[in-house]
Measured scan of single mutants.
Amino acid sequence: EDYYQILGVPRNASQKEIKKAYYQLAKKYHPDTNKDDPKAKEKFSQLAEAYEVLSDEVKRKQYDA
């Protein structure tokens, strides 16, 4: 799945936009606030993985290549 789609940001998003999108979605899908939703944990880990790659310039360049 596309990391940009997961975070809901365009491919040319700035680091600030990526961070903002991640924090909004992380708050929304955090397992502690969605105890009754088994998919929230999965969504949250996808968000974390996408953010880890896109927030790191080197990893992001490799991902975009």
Rank of each mutant, 00 (worst) to 15 (best):
Asp36Phe: 11
Arg60Asn: 02
Tyr23Glu: 15
Ser45Pro: 04
Lys19Leu: 14
Asn34Met: 10
Lys61Thr: 06
Leu25Ile: 06
Glu49Phe: 06
Ala40Thr: 09
Arg11Gln: 07
Ala48Ile: 14
Lys59Phe: 04
Gln62Asp: 14
Asp64Ala: 02
Lys35Arg: 11
Tyr23Trp: 12
Ile18Asn: 00
Ala21Gly: 04
Gln15Arg: 11
Gln5Gly: 06
Lys19Phe: 15
Asp56Thr: 02
Lys16Gln: 15
Gln15Ser: 11
Leu25Cys: 05
Ser14Gln: 05
Ser45Gly: 11
Ala26Asn: 05
Ala40Gly: 07
Val9Tyr: 00
Thr33Trp: 10
Tyr23Cys: 10
Lys27Ile: 15
Ser14Ile: 06
Tyr51Ser: 01
Gln62Phe: 07
Gln5Tyr: 13
Gln24Asp: 15
Lys35Gln: 14
Leu54Pro: 00
Asn12Ser: 12
Arg11Thr: 05
Glu52Asn: 10
Ser45Met: 14
Glu52His: 07
Gln46Cys: 08
Gln5Trp: 12
Lys41Asp: 06
Tyr3Met: 03
Glu1Met: 14
Leu47Trp: 04
Glu1Gly: 13
Lys43Asp: 04
Ala65Glu: 15
Tyr63Ile: 04
Glu17Ser: 08
Glu52Arg: 07
Lys61Cys: 09
Asp37Asn: 10
Lys61Ala: 14
Tyr3Lys: 03
Ala40Arg: 10
Ser45Arg: 11
Gly8Lys: 07
Tyr51Pro: 00
Leu47Pro: 00
Tyr3Cys: 03
Ala65Phe: 05
Lys27Gln: 14
Ala65Asp: 15
Asp32Gln: 10
Ala48Phe: 14
Gln5Asp: 10
Ala21Tyr: 03
Phe44Trp: 14
Asn12Pro: 02
Tyr22Gly: 01
Pro38Cys: 06
Lys27Phe: 08
Val9Ala: 02
Lys27Ser: 15
Ala48Lys: 13
Asp37Ile: 06
Thr33Cys: 10
Ile6Ala: 05
Arg11Val: 07
Ala50Lys: 00
Pro38Phe: 07
Glu52Ala: 14
Val53Ile: 12
Glu1Pro: 14
Glu49Thr: 10
Lys28Leu: 14
Gln46Asp: 06
Ala48Gln: 14
Lys16Ile: 15
Ile18Thr: 01
Thr33Leu: 13
Lys39Gly: 13
Leu54Arg: 00
Tyr29Asp: 04
Asp64Glu: 04
Gln62Ile: 13
Lys35Tyr: 10
Leu7Lys: 00
Ile6Cys: 05
Ala40Leu: 11
Lys59Met: 07
Asp32Met: 06
Ala50Ser: 03
Lys20Ala: 14
Ser55Tyr: 06
Val53His: 04
Ala65Ser: 11
Gln24His: 14
Ala50Cys: 04
Tyr23Met: 15
Val58Tyr: 11
Val9Trp: 00
Asp36Ala: 14
Gln24Asn: 13
Lys28Glu: 12
Tyr23Pro: 03
Leu47Asp: 00
Ala48Cys: 10
Ala26Phe: 14
Glu57Tyr: 07
Asp56Ala: 02
Gln62Asn: 11
Glu1Gln: 13
Lys41His: 14
Tyr22Ala: 03
Ala48Ser: 13
Leu54Thr: 01
Ala40Cys: 08
Ser14Gly: 06
Asn12Met: 06
Lys19Val: 15
Val9Arg: 01
Thr33Ser: 12
Lys43Ser: 06
Pro38Gln: 10
Ser45Ala: 14
Leu54Phe: 01
Gly8Ser: 05
Val58Ala: 15
Val9His: 00
Lys39Gln: 11
Ala65Thr: 09
Gln46His: 08
Ser45Leu: 12
Glu57Phe: 06
